[in-house]
Structure formats: structure tokens, C-alpha cells
Simulated assay, not measured.
Amino acid sequence: MTESSNDADLQPWVGQTCDGLADLLAAEPTATWDAPSLCAGWQVRHVVAHVTMPARLTPQQFGAEMAAAGGDFQRLSDTVAARDAALPGADLLAALRSPVLHAWQPPGGGAAGALDHAVVHALDVTVALGRPSVAPAPAVLAVLDELTAAEGAVFGIDLTGVRLEAPDAGWSWGEGVGDVVRADSGALVSLLAGRRLPDGRALRRR
């Protein structure tokens, strides 16, 4: 994805993905919030608390959180997710629907970074729950294209000799001199993001 031509096209998909996740969770039993996600050690509520940070933290508050975490973003993420996962479900759903979140872009990441964040974390929930993707199909393919263009480097995945196929989207990548990995497009995004699928499949790390 090229930032110059895609920002205006990609950003609306961020809001659509977040709204779709909110709609899904609003229709699910309350116990779903405590179900495991694809993020190791995180329940659904932790994923939503993490992905909605930009709707709750001002840049100044984020800076203070980062300073408290000693500049370690993973530590910050774990701390905020653990704390804000305790918020009422209604508050987390409202944050998913926030125009602030829908317009947010990570520093230096642009709309592509925002879309990656929304799609990957939405899939952390839907794939784990066995639900259809809530992201627009073109958004999932855009993220697939970006992650494979980087040959897996974004999340430290080794794609040497790997061919990826998503029959649901008629999409494929790689020469396949070694392994052929076939899954729906959303599951392939999760694999490229370093997740382990509910069936145990995972891609090699670099």
C-alpha cells in the first residue's frame, strides 16, 4: 500500500472495522468478553481495551503512560489493557464507535498503520471466536498485500519458500517451493501477524 494514494481510501475501513466489531460484541452473550483471543494471555475485553486506547488517551496522557512504562510500548500496552479491560462493556463498545478512534493514525504509520491495527486486532477476536471477519473484505486484502509485500518482516515471520492461498478471496502469494498454507483471508492475516490459530497452525518466526 502506498501512503500517498491510499490514506483517503483506507481510513474509512478503520471505522467500518471498529463499528463491525462493536456490533458483533453487542449481539454476543456477556460471557464473550471473557473468552480468550488470539493474543496470548488476553481475553476479548483486553483486545478491545487495547485497540481503543486512542479513543481514551490524549497525546499527553499517552506520553505520560509511555514515560511510566520506561519507553517500552509492550509494557504500556499490557498495563493499559489490564487496567481498562475492567471498564464496563458499554464503555468499550462506545470507544469502538468513537469518531476519534476512527480518525486515529499511529505516529508515522498513517492510514495504513491504523488499518493494520484495526484489522489485526478485530481478527484476534473474530478468529478466536469462530465468527466471520467484521472488516470489509477489501480491507483484509489490503492488509494481506502489505504484510506479504514486506515478506513477513512486519511481525517477524519467515516466509521463505512459503505459498499463501486464500480461496475465499481468490488471493495467493509466493512461489510455494516449500509449504503451501491455505486458509481464509482473515486467518492468513492472523498468521502473518504472528498469531497461532485455534487449530494450532502458526507460521515460522524469523
Rank of each mutant, 00 (worst) to 15 (best):
Gly170Thr: 09
Leu141Lys: 05
Val154Pro: 00
Pro99Met: 13
Glu3Ser: 15
Leu92Phe: 03
Arg83Leu: 12
Gly15His: 09
Trp173Lys: 01
Ala137Phe: 00
Arg83Trp: 01
Glu28Met: 15
Ala139Met: 09
Gly110Phe: 06
Ala81Tyr: 02
Leu92Cys: 05
Arg195Ile: 10
Val51Asp: 03
Leu197Glu: 11
Trp33Ser: 11
Ala95Asp: 15
Asp179Ala: 15
Ala67Arg: 15
Arg195Asn: 11
Ala55Val: 12
Glu65Arg: 14
Thr126Asn: 06
Val125Pro: 02
Ala137His: 10
Ala81Met: 10
Gly109His: 07
Gly89Tyr: 05
Pro99Glu: 14
Gly178Ser: 09
Leu147Thr: 02
Asp84Leu: 06
Pro132Ala: 08
Leu192Pro: 01
Pro54Gln: 12
Glu151Leu: 01
Leu192Trp: 03
Leu115Phe: 05
Gly15Asp: 12
Asp78Lys: 14
Leu57Lys: 06
Arg204Val: 05
Pro167His: 13
Leu188Phe: 05
Ala114Gln: 02
Gly110Tyr: 07
Thr17Val: 09
Ala166Lys: 04
Pro59Arg: 13
Val125Ser: 08
Asp91Met: 06
Thr17Gly: 10
Phe62Asp: 14
Glu165Phe: 00
Leu147Glu: 02
Gly186Cys: 06
Asp9Gln: 13
Leu24Glu: 08
Asp168Ala: 12
Leu93Val: 13
Met1Ala: 14
Ala40Glu: 15
Leu129Trp: 03
Gly130Pro: 08
Thr126Leu: 04
Ala193Asn: 10
Leu129Thr: 06
Gln60Phe: 03
Leu191Arg: 01
Thr2Asn: 15
Val48Lys: 02
Ala137Gln: 14
Ala31Cys: 00
Pro136Cys: 12
Ala166Cys: 12
Gly178Lys: 06
Pro107Phe: 01
Pro106Ser: 07
Thr30Lys: 07
Thr58His: 12
Ala90Val: 09
Ala153Gln: 13
Leu144Cys: 07
Gln60Lys: 09
Ala142Met: 03
Ala153Leu: 05
Asn6Gly: 08
Ala166Leu: 08
Leu144Asp: 04
Cys39Glu: 11
Leu101Thr: 06
Gly130Thr: 10
His117Ser: 11
Ala149His: 11
Ser77Gln: 14
Ala139Cys: 10
Ala183Arg: 15
Leu38Cys: 09
Ala94Glu: 14
Gly41Cys: 07
